[in-house]
């Protein structure tokens, strides 16, 4: 299967608050908030876990099966990508990031 590598563009900064994650898009001059499972997922995303691990944790958090958790994760990533909060990197994954 082909993998793509994702990361955060340089103009995105974020902070984990009590009940939410606040993300600032410096280019757009805007901020957005993530709450609940979205906020948890956003925080996990940057802790260098693997994709399958994230699916497992989401399944536990959402109390669902891994299939639904996988769908949820993919859906969030697509949306964040479309919103410019994450970007894909051109390089193929062969090394440490490969989950």
């Amino acid at each position: 299967m082909n993998d793509v590598v994702i990361g955060c563009p340089a103009h995105i900064r974020w902070v984990r608050d009590k009940t939410q994650v606040i993300i600032v898009d410096e280019q757009r001059g805007e901020s957005c908030r993530l709450t609940g499972a979205e906020a948890a997922l956003w925080s996990w995303l940057w802790q260098r876990h693997t994709y399958p691990q994230l699916v497992q944790w989401l399944a536990a958090l959402l109390n669902t099966g891994t299939e639904q958790a996988g769908a949820y994760l993919a859906d969030r990533l697509r949306n964040w990508h479309a919103a410019g909060l994450i970007v894909t990197h051109p390089e193929r994954v062969d090394g440490e990031l490969n989950g």
């Binding site: 082909n2 993998d3 793509v4 990361g7 995303l45 876990h49 994709y51 990031l97 989950g99």
Partner: peptide, 10 residues
């Protein structure tokens, strides 16, 4: 800052 690159995604 959100680190980059960070996660391999199918």
């Amino acid at each position: 800052p959100g680190p980059s690159p960070v996660l391999a995604v199918p």
